[in-house]
Design a protein around this nucleic acid. Structure first.
Length: 270
DNA sequence: ATGGTCGGCAACCGA
């Protein structure tokens, strides 16, 4: 029995509902986690996805900013929203599958959208960076206290940190750039370790292979310059790690018409 | 060293 779970920062789900539908039709993951939906819950385009077979949808959105959602072909038996860094700004949602979900039985899927952190990598001068560091600290504390990876669990999302040297186009030139500063990389490492998560992307695509999931809108030619970062992540619990079969980085989606700056990432289990 | 582009939503904020 196989299972496929995908994650994608869509940068407005209403504007790009057509791209989401294209991805669902072409890839047919069992579960798709979206970030940056930028959409209040009552305006979420659920019917677009239900007609493609994704009848089970959990949303946590707000007007204008942030927002996460989970689309599933399989029924889930519960959902949960957690608060990190003392802000209720729609950056986490999780669902848990029951026996009826077959291949996903007993699995909890966490969908995260970590704050980007602004431009200045100094928590004294930039409160957005301070918020990001607090959010990462809270993820570590949650991992240590709740042990979310103790059973069958998957954590995906836009974590807005590219922690390893080959997660960025130039390690040296990125050391002072928010998303690759040492303090962020250390705090992300502490968060993954506190719950004993396994980095699924790097398990299947170990360094020094370069892996990017995001390319800036500001590049004149994103493909030619290829100044990407691995901002999107897939973590799995120890129990699920032996079942890892593949990671697909859907790079082609960056070249679709009016694309998101992130591409979908799919994890496949045997 | 600098500025470069998006989306939401209606002047800038967040990324």
């Amino acid at each position: 029995m196989s299972l496929a779970v995908a994650t994608w920062n869509i940068n407005s789900v209403r504007l790009r509902s057509g791209l989401v539908q294209r991805f669902l039709e072409e890839t047919r993951p069992d579960v798709l986690c979206l970030q940056e939906t930028k959409c209040p819950d009552d305006q979420f385009p659920a019917t677009d996805f239900k007609k493609l077979g994704y009848g089970h949808i959990a949303v946590s959105g707000q007007k204008g900013y942030h927002g996460v959602a989970i689309l599933s072909r399989l029924p889930f038996i519960s959902q949960d929203i957690r608060v990190f860094a003392d802000k209720t700004d729609c950056r986490h949602i999780s669902v848990t599958f029951g026996a009826e979900a077959r291949a996903a039985k007993g699995i909890t899927v966490h969908n995260f959208y970590v704050p980007a952190g602004g431009d200045v990598p100094d928590p004294e001068a930039n409160e957005k960076f301070a918020h990001k560091l607090q959010f990462l600290d809270d993820m570590r504390a949650w991992g240590a206290s709740d042990q979310p990876a103790s059973g069958k669990a998957i954590l995906v999302g836009d974590l807005n940190v590219a922690p390893l040297e080959n997660d960025v186009w130039s390690h040296k030139q990125m050391l002072d750039v928010v998303s690759h500063t040492p303090i962020e990389c250390e705090k992300l490492a502490a968060a993954i370790q506190s719950a004993d998560w396994v980095d699924a992307i790097r398990t299947l695509k170990p360094e020094p292979e370069r892996v990017f999931t995001w390319w800036s809108y500001r590049a004149a030619d994103w493909e030619a310059s290829n100044r990407g970062r691995r901002l999107d992540h897939v973590w799995v619990s120890r129990e699920l790690a032996p079942g890892l079969a593949a990671i697909d980085i859907h790079r082609a989606a960056r070249g679709w018409e009016r694309p998101s700056d992130h591409v979908p990432v799919t994890v496949r289990f045997k």
